[in-house]
Simulated scan of single mutants.
Amino acid sequence: MIEFIHVDKTYANGTAALRDINLRIEQGEFVAVIGLSGAGKSTLIRCINRMHEITGGTLMVDDVDVAKLKGREIRRFRRRIGMIFQSFNLVTRTTVLKNVLVSFVPELPYWRKWTGIYTREQKIKALEALDKVGILDKSFVRVDQLSGGQQQRVALARTLAQSPDIILADEPIASLDPVTARVVMDDFKNINKAMSISVIMNIHHVDMALEYADRIIGISQGEVVFDGEASKVTPEILQHIYGGQWEGEKHD
């Protein structure tokens, strides 16, 4: 369970990115965060795993006060939270399997880190993660030989291998074509339902958000201006979230 209690985030230059955020996200929810660029969507997501520090209020994850964690506690806490980026963050000159195995590096003894030798159990877990996203057959292919969609699925498999309770996704389909984006969104949905992993996704593709997410959080100028079921979102609500600039999404 994730709970924002009067959370504020102000950057060093004085920019107020989040203002008095109050949210409660239960385990197993699929939540899409939408709004204009610069509205505070990425900041909201990145506060959950302490990539950004909050400057006011309280942020709780399963009764843990995130802001009070220090050093090793933060690293241990982050093991429970997978993070998916738009840019994939993969090592493209090595194999798919090796990229997934990277998720185990924080828990390896030093000699295994130096030698790059993983346990049999870790290798099996990595292969199982690749199987869950449908690219087991690419295990020994170099990442730079894969399409963008396949690379994003490698990133998702790497996250799954660490057995997270929560997956945070920051614009995971922004650089993908519509067909590939749908395949990746199917993966997120299947993982969310089959494994009861919470998914909180910052996304610009509103039609995808409404189709795949159970819940929509609309952010405008750092404030939550809508929080409700995806099925309840109307064009009028979208106009409100997007400050009157919503014109609908255009498709070829």
Rank of each mutant, 00 (worst) to 15 (best):
L108Y: 05
K9V: 08
S175P: 10
T15R: 13
L238W: 10
H205L: 10
K250H: 08
A12K: 14
M83Y: 13
R158P: 01
V96T: 15
S198W: 02
L238Y: 06
S87P: 02
E29F: 00
V225S: 03
S175Y: 09
A32M: 00
F226H: 10
S231F: 00
A155F: 03
L36I: 03
M208I: 09
Q221N: 13
L210K: 01
N202F: 04
D20S: 02
Y11E: 08
M208P: 03
V33R: 08
F88K: 04
F226P: 02
R50Q: 13
V61M: 04
Y11R: 07
Y110M: 13
L127E: 14
R79E: 08
P106F: 11
L97I: 03
F4K: 02
Y110F: 12
T234R: 03
R79G: 06
A209Q: 05
R75Q: 15
S175A: 15
K9N: 04
A16L: 14
R153V: 04
H204A: 01
Y11F: 15
R80Y: 06
Q239R: 11
A155K: 04
A12N: 08
A213S: 14
G82Q: 05
I5F: 09
R24F: 06
R120D: 10
I84S: 02
A230E: 00
V64A: 10
F4L: 02
T15D: 13
L168Y: 00
E3H: 02
H205I: 06
F104C: 13
